[in-house]
């Protein structure tokens, strides 16, 4: 059933999946969506002018954002942008040099422990206990939250089922595949029935099936009212799951907003991807007919409100492959963090 809906959604990447019935209807059109936050208790995470340096390297730079309860908030940015550091700051695993952090109403890091008791974490790198089986991992992790063995034994089968690991319950973690480990990590993150999930690249390294399974699971968690802070490098993932997202680079916020608002603002026209030729030579051919061109690797991205014009220019050139499509978050990401930014 869910597989069918999913297939429909993925066939039209530019359309948002059906909206979450638990979410407030007031998702507005602009980025500074203050109406989201009706009162203090509606705020899951608030960062105000947070900075963090290691040595003389500034890793998080005057970063501020607010995540509403029940919202899925995406944190995007190139490698080394500071995303995982933000997760550590939010969990109170590292103190900020400057600024204030409030998570689930608790000041962090001072009272981070109380916040963490209501948070589930999927770290970027698995920290599963290789000395134990899947079931034992859940048991040990649940005890860390002060849960009783009897409660845990009652909850573990449904979590294993949630992660589709029923048949692997008694298999040592060392013998699980990467995707199974990731699903087990997600199950562990849910052991304390958290209000807030902090997911650092939950689907990196997974095959498409496993990734779709996790997306479906995350969507059902959002439907149950959970808040998610999601770090990802998959723009499709961000587009499908996130209500709002924030792109950071060098620890600084570049933009923040709803995925489709960002696509409209930053791109706003169709894209033609051209490969098979020398991108630098092609720029001079199509450049005058496009609003913007961008080279990424061997591909020329051509942003044009009149794509026909561009196609006409390329007629007759052999060996080129053209793909015309609506703009997506990947274009936004490339534009914001790509060559243009650095020049």
């Amino acid at each position: 059933m869910q597989l069918l809906t999913r297939a429909n959604v993925s066939s039209s990447p530019s359309r948002r999946p059906e909206s979450n019935p638990f979410k407030q209807e007031c998702h507005g059109h602009n980025n500074a969506d203050n109406s989201l936050f009706r009162s203090k208790s509606d705020v899951a995470i608030e960062l105000t002018n947070v900075s963090k340096s290691y040595g003389d390297k500034v890793v998080v730079d005057q970063l501020s954002f607010t995540i509403a309860s029940g919202e899925c908030f995406g944190l995007l940015g190139p490698n080394g942008a500071g995303k995982s550091t933000v997760s550590r700051l939010v969990l109170g695993m590292a103190p900020p040099d400057e600024g204030t952090i409030t998570v689930l109403g608790e000041p962090v890091p001072a009272r981070a422990r109380l916040a963490r008791s209501r948070i589930g974490v999927v770290p970027q790198f698995d920290t599963l206990d290789r000395e134990f089986t899947a079931r034992e991992n859940l048991l040990v992790f649940g005890r860390y939250f002060g849960l009783r063995t009897r409660e845990l034994e009652a909850a573990i089968p449904s979590l294993l089922e949630f992660a589709r690991l029923e048949s692997k319950a008694d298999v040592p973690v060392a013998e699980l595949s990467g995707g199974m480990k990731r699903r087990l990590t997600l199950a562990c993150a849910l052991i304390n029935d958290p209000q807030l999930l902090i997911l650092d690249e939950p689907t990196t390294g997974l095959d498409p099936h496993a990734r779709h399974l996790i997306w479906e699971r995350l969507r059902s968690l959002l439907a149950r009212g959970k808040t998610i802070l999601l770090t990802t490098h998959f723009m499709e993932e961000a587009d499908r799951l996130c209500d709002r997202l924030c792109v950071i680079e060098h620890g600084r916020k570049i933009v923040e907003g709803r995925p489709h608002a960002l696509i409209d603002e930053q791109i706003g026209c169709d894209v033609i991807e051209i490969y098979g030729g020398n991108p630098r030579e092609l720029i001079s051919v199509v450049g005058p007919y496009a609003q913007r061109v961008e080279v990424s690797g061997e591909t020329l991205f051509c942003y044009a409100s009149d794509p026909e014009q561009v196609r006409v220019q390329l007629r007759g050139q052999t060996g080129l492959r053209l793909l015309q499509r609506p703009p997506n978050l990947e274009d936004v990401f490339l534009r914001l963090t790509g060559r243009e930014m650095k020049d």
Partner: peptide, 14 residues
């Protein structure tokens, strides 16, 4: 090496 503490630090343990 085993990062056992790291996972425990994500919980309500200090």
């Amino acid at each position: 090496a085993k990062r056992t503490w790291e996972s425990a630090l994500c919980t309500q343990l200090t």
